[in-house]
Simulated assay, not measured.
Amino acid sequence: MATKTESLRRRALRIRRSVKKVANGRPRLSVHRSSKHIYAQIIDDSVGRTLAAASSLDPKLKGDLKTGADVEAATAVGKLVAERAKEAGISDVVFDRGAFIYHGRVKAVAEGAREGGLNF
């Protein structure tokens, strides 16, 4: 029987594989959440480079947030990564939730990014 980390890794790779199939050249917005923080980055898989990134540890956000582990922080991270993507000239992305369920903080990052102007 697979351990929990192996199962999470397999699920993340399965999701990532399906996301890359439908990407059509668009970069992916990858989300990772831990128990204390949330991270988002926009990755161009054709060259393997991060184009924009934001997290609840970012100096722009850290002072304004009560904690990095709530929906408000996730929404702020989504808006910040969308702002940085706009500066880099990116408007269309594909959403990669990794091994996480599209619910709660992961959903809040997506909604924040949409409010910030990203299309996916």
Rank of each mutant, 00 (worst) to 15 (best):
A54Q: 08
A54S: 12
I42Q: 06
E6V: 06
K4N: 13
E6S: 09
A99Y: 13
V47F: 11
V47C: 15
A23C: 03
G78R: 09
A76R: 14
G117I: 04
L13A: 11
V81R: 15
L61W: 09
T5N: 12
L65G: 01
R49A: 10
R97K: 12
T50F: 05
L13Q: 13
I90D: 03
A82Y: 06
A82G: 07
I101F: 15
R10H: 09
G25N: 07
M1E: 14
D44L: 02
R49F: 01
S18A: 12
D58V: 00
M1Y: 07
V77T: 08
S30W: 03
N119Q: 11
R105P: 14
V81P: 12
A69C: 12
A74S: 13
S18L: 15
G78M: 05
N24I: 00
R28L: 03
K107Y: 10
S46Q: 15
R33V: 07
G117D: 07
G68F: 02
S35C: 10
Y39E: 01
L29D: 01
P59H: 10
A113Y: 09
E111I: 00
V93P: 05
A110F: 11
T3S: 13
A85C: 01
V109I: 15
S35D: 13
K79R: 15
R49Q: 14
D96F: 04
A2E: 15
R97V: 04
V106A: 08
R26N: 05
R33N: 04
A74T: 01
I43S: 07
R114Y: 02
K62F: 01
T67P: 14
A82N: 06
K66I: 06
